[in-house]
Amino acid sequence: MTVALRGLSTVVPPTVLVQPEVRDVFAAQPGLNRLAQRIITTSFDVSAIETRHTVIAELSRDAHPDDPVFFDIDSGVLLQPGTKARNELYAQQATGLYVAAGRAAIDATPGIDTADVTHIVTVSCTGFYAPGPDFMIARELGLDAGVERYHLGFMGCYASIPALRLAKQLCEADASAVVLVVSVELCTLHLRSSNDPDTIVASSLFSDGAGAAIVTAHPPEPGERALVLDRFATRITPTGEGDMAWKIGDHGFEMVLSNAVPALIDEHITGALEPLFAHDPALVDALETDAAGRAVEHWAIHPGGRSILDKVETRLVLSEAQLVPARDTLRDYGNMSSATVLFVLRHILDGDAGAGERVAAMAFGPGLTVESALMTVSG
C-alpha cells in the first residue's frame, strides 16, 4: 500500500520579529551581567536568522496596549508573566492557527474535503488546554462527530515525524483513512530575559508557526505534488539526555539547549540513519562511503540552529544546495520546534524536486532523540 503526504501547508502569525531589533531589546534588559550581554550579542548575530513570527502582538512596533503583559514598549522592558498567563494566551491563539493550517491542508488536497477526514493528529509542546486542539479542529472545520482524534504533546522539535508515522500506520490499518496532521508551536510565549546561557540561546532561536498535511492512501491526482511516505526510524543517542530538555517553570516553559548538542548530533547522526536506510543496500553503501548526499537528492533537516546544520552538512557530506531548504527556513522563520520540518518539506516540494527523487527528513529533540523519515516525490 502506498501512503502519501498531500496538501502540505504552512501558516505563521502576522507579527514579525526582526532579529537585530529583538537582539537590542534583549541586550537592553535590566539586571543582565556583562557575560549575558556578550552571549546575547553573539547568539543573535550568529543565528543565521533574519526574521521570526510571534503571536505576541505586544512585540509589534505599533503596539501600545494599556496593560501590557509580555512587553512594555514604552519602557522597553520585557515583563515576566507567570506560566498561567502564557498558557492562556496559547489557548487563545493556537486554535486559530490549528484551524487555519488544517483548512489550508484540506483545501490544497485535490479530491479531499472535510467530509472525508477520518482522523486528526495534532502536535505541540508549547501549551496545553482541553478540550484540546484536536477537538477544536473537528468543531471549527465541521468534521464528522465520529472523527478519531490523537494529540502528541510535549515531545519537542522532532514530534511531527512520529505524527506522520502514526498517520501512515492508521492508513495502513484502514485503506480508506484520511488523516489530518497539524502541528502548532508558539515558542515565543516562553521567551524571557535571563543571565542563563541556555535561555539566551533559546531566545535567539525560537519562534511561532503551524504546519499541516493530509496523509492518505487515496492516490494523488495527476500532476499533484506529494510525498510518498516510505519508511520511518527513531534512535535515542547513548548520551545527551541532559543537553536538550523542556521543563515547566513558574514563568513559562524552560528550555535546556546546551552547546554540546551540535557535537552530539555530529557524533550520532550517521548511526541514527542506519535503521532508516537498512532495507536498501544502495543507501547503506552510500552511508558507509560518505555518499549519502548523492544517494538521496533532498534533505529536510530540522534547523535547530546554524551550528547543527553545519555539523549535518559536514558529517553527511551534503552539498550546500541540499541544505538550502533548511537554511532558508531558519533565516525566514527561525526554529518553530515541531512545525519546522514541515516548512522545510514544503520548501522542497515548492522547489525543483522531480518525481521519483528521494527525500530524507530528520529532526532532533529531547532525549537526545533523532527521528527520521524517507520519502519519494510524486507528481
Rank of each mutant, 00 (worst) to 15 (best):
V117E: 00
T118K: 01
H119F: 05
H119A: 14
I120P: 00
V121R: 08
C125I: 07
T126G: 07
G127E: 05
G127N: 05
A130C: 14
P131W: 13
P131M: 12
F135Q: 11
F135G: 03
M136Q: 04
M136L: 10
I137M: 02
A138S: 08
E140G: 02
L141W: 03
G146C: 13
V147F: 06
H151Q: 13
H151K: 07
G153C: 10
F154T: 14
Y158P: 03
A159G: 12
A159M: 15
A163S: 08
L164E: 09
C171L: 11
C171W: 08
E172M: 14
D174N: 15
S176G: 15
V184S: 13
E185S: 06
H190A: 10
S194D: 02
S194R: 02
D196V: 10
I200M: 03
V201E: 01
V201A: 11
S203G: 14
S204W: 07
F206T: 01
F206S: 01
S207L: 13
S207R: 05
S207C: 09
G209A: 08
G209E: 02
G209S: 10
G211Q: 07
A213E: 06
I214T: 04
I214S: 02
V215E: 14
T216F: 06
A217E: 11
H218G: 10
E221N: 02
E221M: 04
P222N: 13
R225Y: 02
R225G: 07
L227V: 05
